[in-house]
Nucleic acid binder design. Structure first.
Lengths: 252, 252
DNA sequence: GCAACAGCCTGACGTCGCGTCAGGCGCAAC
DNA sequence: GTTGCGCCTGACGCGACGTCAGGCTGTTGC
């Protein structure tokens, strides 16, 4: 059994142009061409298209989709598990948005209004979806990653909220220290950094001082992390980074 | 209280460039400029930005967001209700995708594989999200729309599935008639069309023969509907359209 | 046996929602 | 008074296609 572009397009609910595009960029090349140059897709191509559409729907850029699908040691089961996780993340996120809307409706009915921070909270909940893929790219082959995957996979939504509350707390105390003018290389700041390290070890993976140093560097080098901390308070990314790295040096 | 671009960007989790862009295209213009030309956002701007981000997250193009927000008789409560609905649609859709992934996992474990149609089913479930906005644009001020809104708002997920199964059935029988060479203006095809009309009346809104004629025209004129029917079978859009319009003429 | 027509092909340019410089002004701090 | 961060306005770039234009192919109807 094989399909022409038009047939596959109808089947999958995309346009012919999209399939042309995927061909051109090498994301999905038909396994055959007829003598007249017509594209001919077989069942494996169809399989791949399904995966592509899945990751695309979840917001992955096409080049990342390509690297995910071309990873030689990612069998179908790996993809299915990952997709399952990503979807659950999305469910959680959507539920959070529902909750936010309901909160606003209630507030409105009671005639009160929310603070600016409260109103944008739901948009700031970065951490899951977007980052998951990149993180795996970088550290997918490390023990830490596997360990983190196992632990977080077993976590319920309530577990997540507890973990998030705990880390929010440390972040707030970091921000307070920064605002109070406490130097980033002071003992107080380093103690916060140490607390941060132990949190990671408890909830995600063994975070040695060396690993923590790497994380600290990333907070100022990877703009995603930088943006995350800067949204809490300007200068916080650099502050936490310094505290973490000084603390690691103290331990070592 | 007012905010500079940078402050608002951090608060809302977007970039300064994004706010510049929204200003340029008129989607969100700061209520004031300082003497030096600096943008100054007040609490209403902040309010509007939140709405913009909400609709954007739900996949609306920015110009549609603008028309939604600039609608004079859409008070905040209307937006909240709509957002609540859109989110519930999204929850359903995501849950359907989770179910699809789990179905695949099971199939894989039992060593069987799904049919191509089954595998793309989840991507074909058009109808809600994307269309909702446009539909309201076109018919938001009609009685039919209000009626449909009231009824569908009260429907549970099971109700939806029942309705969908019913309409799928008629669509399949239309496709079978087309495949069997039954003319679109035959009594058999018109009977199917009549069944279609009564389904709409039962589940959504009073669909008079005249309204049904309009719908029929749309099936070939609006490419979204055309695509929907063409995915079931090539030529089905035109076929259903003709059957519906001939049937309406018979009634009239 | 050939005309008609739907479907396929390859450029190539357009669009949307920003990202990313470049070059320059404003203002608060040291 | 200069250092430096934040703001400004162009202007070009990019990802993921949409949308013609111009031409070949393959099936169907007479």
């Amino acid at each position: 059994m094989s399909w022409t572009v038009g047939e596959l397009a109808r089947l999958a609910g995309v346009t012919v142009r999209t399939l042309h595009h995927y061909d051109r960029i090498g994301l999905l090349q038909p396994s055959e061409r007829t003598s007249a140059g017509y594209r001919s897709y077989d069942v494996h191509d169809l399989d791949r298209l399904q995966q592509v559409l899945f990751y695309r729907e979840l917001g992955f850029p096409l080049d990342e989709v390509a690297t995910l699908l071309d990873d030689p040691d990612a069998d179908p089961a790996v993809h299915l598990r990952r997709q399952h996780r990503l979807l659950r993340d999305r469910l959680d996120r959507t539920q959070a948005m529902v909750a936010a809307v309901e909160k606003e409706m209630e507030a409105r009915q009671m005639g009160i209004s929310l603070t600016p921070e409260e109103r944008f909270e739901v948009f700031g909940d970065w951490l899951p979806e977007e980052y998951a893929a990149e993180a795996e790219e970088k550290w997918g082959d490390t023990d830490a990653w596997a360990q983190s995957q196992r632990r977080t996979a077993a976590m319920s939504k309530e577990d997540w909220l507890r973990v998030k509350a705990e880390s929010d707390d440390v972040e707030r105390r970091f921000a307070a220290a920064l605002a109070a003018g406490v130097p980033a290389d002071s003992t107080a700041a380093m103690d916060l950094a140490e607390e941060h390290r132990q949190q990671i070890s408890r909830h995600f993976y063994d975070c040695s001082p060396e690993v923590h140093t790497g994380l600290g560097r990333m907070y100022v080098e990877d703009e995603r992390f930088t943006a995350y901390y800067e949204r809490i308070a300007p200068g916080l990314a650099q502050y936490v980074s310094t505290a973490v790295q000084t603390n690691a040096a103290r331990q070592g």
